[in-house]
């Protein structure tokens, strides 16, 4: 039974939509230091919907720009390349994350809210802890649960088995792995590999529930791990898996995290999530 099912899962990973064209082009462009803002505009000009979303995100309070930005060119100047590319990726995957997710029992829009929550909580943790982290943290956090889109249907079919294992105190993703032979973290990482995403992002997604099992330690993995647990605790995107995950004491020690840091970040996360989710509400 298992080989068949894992084959079906892998077939779905293969047929999962490729990375949206504009995001792919921009990622290539961003490696080219001669690139300038007008090239970004050139790529985006054929996609007015995408451009509109990027401008709406740019103007959201989260980025705190003093005045309203009316063009992608201006956005690049004020926010910088890396941020604008993050927003392009965000807008491109938005349509995927908008749907309800079976198995994990996430109503429509909730995976997006959760993903935004983990992104803003991750960036806020970096600020609160006064540590250095690569800018990729936003995208890694945003895409950490992408694998749920593929695995959800399979989780739903095997829910009874998964839950009977999880009810014995086994983390939910470990129960997924025992029953399905894989879990949503592994699947998400595979999709991002197929999309040729940078390896740091892939490994942050791969190990977001099990940082101690990673063959490396890095800031991205640690921060996404904590931001995810925190977002679930405050009820953003908490579905069938509940709080059935074990935060790593090694990670919190490495980060020097304390209760005050965690609660401060929690108190600030909700507002940003609401503001950024609202950008997409009228789609």
């Amino acid at each position: 039974m298992r080989p068949k099912q894992i084959d079906r899962i892998m077939a779905e990973v293969k047929s999962f939509p490729g990375m949206p064209g504009a995001a792919a082009k921009l990622l290539t462009l961003s490696n080219n230091s001669d690139a300038d803002a007008s090239q970004v505009e050139e790529i985006l000009r054929y996609d007015p919907g995408l451009t509109a979303n990027i401008l709406r995100l740019t103007n959201s309070a989260y980025f705190g720009l003093p005045s309203k930005v009316g063009s992608v060119k201006q956005a690049v100047v004020l926010l910088g390349w890396k941020r604008v590319i993050q927003l392009v990726i965000f807008s491109c995957v938005n349509a995927l994350m908008d749907k309800s997710v079976a198995g994990y029992d996430l109503p429509p829009g909730e995976l997006r809210r959760h993903s935004i929550a983990v992104s803003v909580a991750a960036e806020d943790l970096v600020k609160e802890l006064k540590i250095m982290a690569p800018p990729e943290i936003f995208t890694a956090a945003l895409l950490h649960d992408l694998g749920k889109l593929v695995l959800g249907g399979f989780v739903k079919d095997e829910m009874e088995k998964i839950e009977s294992i999880a009810s014995q105190g086994v983390p939910f993703e470990a129960a997924e792995h025992m029953v399905l032979g894989t879990d949503h973290a592994e699947i998400g990482a595979q999709i991002l590999k197929n999309w040729s995403f940078p390896s740091e992002i892939v490994s942050a997604v791969r190990w977001h529930h099990a940082p101690d099992a990673a063959d490396e330690t890095n800031m991205l993995i640690d921060i996404v791990h904590v931001a995810n647990v925190l977002s679930l605790m405050i009820g953003i995107g908490v579905g069938r898996e509940g709080l059935q995950h074990e935060p790593s004491p090694l990670v919190t020690k490495r980060l020097g995290l304390n209760i005050t840091d965690l609660e401060k970040v929690a108190s600030r996360t909700l507002q940003w999530v609401n503001e950024m989710s609202d950008v997409f509400v009228n789609d």
Binding site: P171, V229, M233, L243, H245, E246, P247, T252, L257, E263
Partner: peptide, 14 residues
């Protein structure tokens, strides 16, 4: 007032 698995004091917000 739930909480994640494990026994880390940090995550006992619930």
């Amino acid at each position: 007032c739930g909480r994640p698995l494990g026994n880390d004091e940090l995550f006992k917000i619930g």
